[in-house]
């Protein structure tokens, strides 16, 4: 007898808000490294953005360390680079933090050196940005390697995570404009492009999940979709356009930055903790009872 019988999926509790924190802070931090490196030629100082990115990435990793069951064995995480994206993320984290730390020290001239350091800072900043992007990609692959969670194994989640990280990085740079200096105007334009890309990636991902994941996962994503678009995309776009045309762009740009960052964090928190329903059980055939031999 043919019939698909399903056992209900359940919301995973293995990774909670601490794990979500790693995806939120790591993504935003690595995105900020890229934005900060790109802003250097415009005369923007590296240190404020570098320190914030360093702190965010480190905080995210620390939260993961708090979540694992055997924190004193944490170094075992390096044992499986052949296939584990978690190992690869950990392997990248070390040089990433060292390089960003060195760039901050040189940018601030904390260590006096007998040569000009600006060029070295630019080189280190770009090295940090590239490693940061690789780190961000690893985070995306960690999620999509989770075959037991249909909303995570959907391949288009990779682009959502990477684009969201870059968008948050631009958002943080816009927010830093309040404290450091007016961000260069290309950041406003880049923010518009990034939020359009995020809106598209999110919509595509949401539709793909609706086609293949449990209804409960789809419902969790649908619940936040309208506010995500309104706050994170429409409102942020309006504020960025205002920043582009106004002579005093710092406040609208910071508002847009806040919307980009907050919505990115909300989106990732929802994906990790609210839409993460397991595969559940399914049998495609019912047992035939009552025949001789059965």
């Amino acid at each position: 007898m043919t019939a698909t019988v399903r056992g209900a999926p359940r919301l995973q509790r293995s990774w909670d808000s601490r794990a979500a924190c790693n995806f939120i802070c790591g993504g935003a931090g690595t995105g900020l490294l890229l934005a900060a490196a790109a802003a250097l030629p415009s005369g923007w100082p590296y240190a404020p953005a570098g320190v914030l990115a360093f702190a965010l990435i480190g905080f995210g990793l620390w939260m993961v360390w708090l979540e694992i069951g055997r924190p004193l064995r944490a170094l075992n995480v390096f044992f499986h680079p052949q296939t584990s994206w978690m190992t690869r993320e950990a392997l990248l984290a070390l040089p990433l933090l060292i390089i960003v730390g060195a760039a901050i020290l040189l940018d601030q001239r904390i260590v006096p050196l007998p040569f000009k350091t600006h060029g070295t800072v630019i080189d280190l900043a770009w090295a940090g940005a590239v490693l940061g992007l690789a780190f961000l990609y690893c985070q995306a692959r960690i999620l999509t390697a989770s075959k037991g969670v249909p909303a995570w194994r959907e391949p288009s989640l990779q682009s959502v995570i990477v684009i969201t990280g870059i968008t948050e990085g631009l958002g943080l740079l816009l927010l830093l404009g309040l404290a450091v200096a007016t961000p260069p105007s290309w950041v406003f334009a880049a923010g518009l492009v990034a939020l359009a890309a995020r809106a598209g990636a999110w919509e595509y991902y949401r539709r793909r999940v609706a086609a293949g994941a449990p209804a409960t996962a789809t419902a969790a994503l649908n619940r936040i979709s309208s506010p995500v678009h309104l706050l994170g995309h429409v409102l942020a776009a309006v504020l960025l356009i205002v920043a582009l045309i106004t002579p005093t762009p710092v406040l609208p740009a910071a508002g847009a930055g806040l919307a980009l960052v907050a919505v990115g964090a909300w989106l990732k928190f929802t994906v990790v903790t609210r839409a993460a329903f397991t595969q559940g059980f399914a049998i495609p055939f019912l047992p035939v009872r009552g025949r001789a031999g059965s």
Binding site: I68, V77, T278, Q279
Partner: peptide, 14 residues
């Protein structure tokens, strides 16, 4: 094992 739970989320059979 460090108890990271990645395997628990990768297993489609709970």
């Amino acid at each position: 094992c460090i108890g990271c739970s990645a395997c628990m989320l990768a297993c489609p059979y709970d």
